[in-house]
Computed example of a mutant assay.
Amino acid sequence: MLVEEVMTKGIRIAEADEKIAHAAKKMRTQNIGALPVIDNHKLVGMLTDRDIAIRAVGANKDLSETTVRDVMSEECFWCSASEDLEDAVRIMEQNRVRRLPVMNKQQEIIGMLSLEDVALYAPASLTGEVLKAVANREYEIVAT
C-alpha cells in the first residue's frame, strides 16, 4: 500500500512569516493540530498546537505580532506520496512524530500522513508499533 492511498488530501499550510494568530485560526477552523510551514515554496518546519501553547502563549508572546517562524519546530520529517506506507511508518517511528507532510515528485506538499491514517488503513501490528514508538517520549520538565 502506498502513502498516497491513505494520506489526508487538501492540506492546509502556514507561511513562515505569517502571524501566529492567523495560523491558529486556520487550525481551529479546520480542526487540525499541525500545519506544515513553507518559505519560498520550500518546507521549512511544522507548527503544532503544542508549539503555539508552549512557545507562544506560555512565553507570553503577542500572538498578533509573533510569526510562525518564531515558534515552529524547525526539524521536519516528510515522506513521498509514492513511498510504501510501511516505510513512511518507519520514519514516524524513528523520529517519534505523529504526522508527516507528504510530497510529490516536484517536492510540493500534497497531503499529510497521520497516526489516524495509519490506524485506519495499516495492519494492527504496524499501527501498534508506531503508536508505541511515538508515545514513548521523554519530556524535560522545566521549573518556572
Rank of each mutant, 00 (worst) to 15 (best):
L2V: 00
L2I: 01
L2N: 00
V3I: 00
E4R: 15
E5G: 08
E5A: 10
V6F: 01
V6I: 07
M7C: 00
T8G: 09
T8K: 07
T8Y: 09
G10N: 09
R12S: 13
A14R: 02
A14V: 03
E15P: 11
E15M: 08
D17E: 13
K19P: 06
K19I: 02
A21I: 15
H22V: 08
A23F: 02
A23I: 02
A24R: 09
K25Q: 15
K26G: 06
K26A: 14
R28T: 14
T29D: 15
T29F: 10
Q30M: 13
N31F: 12
A34W: 06
A34Y: 05
L35G: 02
V37C: 10
D39R: 14
H41D: 15
K42W: 12
L43Y: 06
L43I: 06
V44A: 02
V44I: 14
M46N: 04
D51L: 14
A53Q: 08
A53S: 12
I54S: 11
I54G: 12
R55P: 10
A56F: 07
A56H: 02
G58H: 12
A59E: 11
A59M: 12
K61E: 11
L63P: 05
S64M: 08
S64Y: 06
E65G: 00
E65K: 15
T67L: 08
V68D: 00
V68C: 00
R69Y: 14
D70E: 15
D70W: 11
D70T: 14
V71N: 03
M72T: 04
S73C: 11
S73N: 12
E74S: 13
E75W: 11
F77Y: 12
C79I: 01
S82Q: 08
S82H: 09
L85C: 00
D87R: 05
D87F: 06
D87L: 06
D87Q: 13
A88D: 00
A88K: 00
R90T: 13
R90E: 14
I91F: 07
I91T: 15
E93Q: 12
E93S: 09
Q94V: 10
Q94C: 06
N95W: 14
R96Y: 07
R98Y: 05
R99E: 11
L100R: 02
N104Y: 01
Q106T: 01
Q107C: 06
Q107S: 09
E108F: 13
E108Y: 09
I109H: 04
M112S: 03
L113S: 03
L115H: 08
D117K: 00
V118W: 06
A119N: 10
A119Y: 08
L120V: 10
Y121P: 01
A122T: 04
A122W: 10
P123N: 05
A124M: 07
S125W: 14
S125G: 04
S125K: 13
S125Q: 14
T127Q: 12
G128E: 08
V130M: 04
L131G: 14
L131P: 03
L131W: 10
K132W: 07
V134N: 05
A135S: 13
E138V: 12
Y139V: 10
Y139G: 01
Y139D: 05
A143E: 12
T144Q: 08
